[in-house]
């Protein structure tokens, strides 16, 4: 048991690399999803244009953030077919890999909040303000209601996800303010405050989780030795208990799971693995 240093047993058991396999893959993916947008501006070969709000890959494939389309509809604008099609493709994709896979594998803010969390734990800071579980739904409702009332795409005024991504891809400077604010908020005000308690984008993508295919499973939960390392690394620890400690399905079915797979990394007993919805037979 090593809550301040989770994964020590896993490193001893599997070696450092295997105990960080999914973390490394995830950082690679985050870099990849930023990188494909930067190929164009850097080399003038326009692989992917636009940003996470809406993009065009190889002059062909349109992708649009479905939450933006929802806000636009709430603001009483019916987007053109390209944007609607892009949103459907994105929805379909995340129905396969899991909605909040966006949060941990694509969203650039995750790198900021993970860094803040790392430092937060290193400094041994207190949890701070922990908003109630329903707060994110409130934020999501606010975003849609705000769009309806103001007739603007409401969340884009402050949305750190797109502001940061747009700034990195289009070379705007203002995003550093947002990055600093989120970092300090997560470091000093609220542990895992932004991504796990407030962000309405995550709350939206989480709803796709309710029907998505790719899941984490505590498949070998009978070997669990209660070291608690998975709880220590999980950004949404409330998703673990029902899968690990219940008599029901071992599949992590809670909407908030981000499929970050750190639990697989840090478990020295190899309790967890990826699975597909419906594939898991009950023990």
């Amino acid at each position: 048991m090593s809550l301040d240093d989770p994964g020590r047993e896993a490193i001893a058991e599997k070696g450092w690399l295997l105990a960080h396999k999914w973390l490394l893959l995830r950082r690679g993916a985050q870099l990849f999803f930023l990188g494909i947008f930067l190929v164009g501006p850097l080399t003038a070969f326009w692989l992917v244009e636009g940003n996470l709000a809406s993009s065009r890959t190889l002059d062909l494939l349109p992708l649009t953030d479905p939450l933006l389309v929802l806000q636009s509809l709430a603001a009483r604008h019916l987007p053109e077919t390209t944007a609607l099609l892009g949103a459907v493709i994105v929805l379909a994709g995340y129905l396969v890999v899991g909605g909040r896979t966006y949060c941990s594998w694509v969203c650039p803010v995750n790198v900021v909040t993970d860094a803040a969390h790392w430092l937060h734990i290193k400094l041994g800071l207190a949890k701070g303000w922990q908003p109630k579980p329903g707060t994110r739904y409130g934020m999501l409702a606010l975003v849609l209601l705000g769009s309806a009332v103001t007739g603007t795409i409401f969340w884009e005024v402050v949305n750190p996800v797109t502001i940061v991504h747009r700034a990195l891809v289009f070379g705007l400077a203002g995003a550093w303010l947002i990055i600093a604010a989120i970092f300090l908020f997560d470091l000093l005000v609220s542990r895992r405050g932004w991504c796990s308690h407030l962000c309405p984008v995550g709350a939206f993508y989480g709803q796709i989780n309710r029907a998505s295919l790719l899941k984490i499973s505590a498949a070998k939960r009978e070997t669990c030795d209660d070291c608690m390392d998975c709880f220590a690394v999980c950004p949404e620890p409330q998703v673990i208990t029902p899968a690990l400690k219940s008599k029901g399905s071992p599949v992590v079915s809670h909407w908030a799971c981000t499929n970050c797979a750190r639990c697989i990394d840090v478990c020295s007993k190899d309790v967890y693995r990826f699975t597909l919805r419906g594939m898991e037979t009950r023990p």
């Binding site: 244009e49 603001a75 944007a83 891809v169 203002g174």
Partner: peptide
């Protein structure tokens, strides 16, 4: 302008396709 802010998702594709670099995306300030 009022309708524009409910319709533009701020993706910057128009900026990318402007051959004269006329268009730019607004920074926060």
């Amino acid at each position: 302008e009022d309708d524009f802010l409910g319709a533009c998702v701020r993706c910057g594709l128009c900026v990318r396709d402007c051959p004269y670099d006329t268009l730019k995306l607004a920074d926060l300030a």
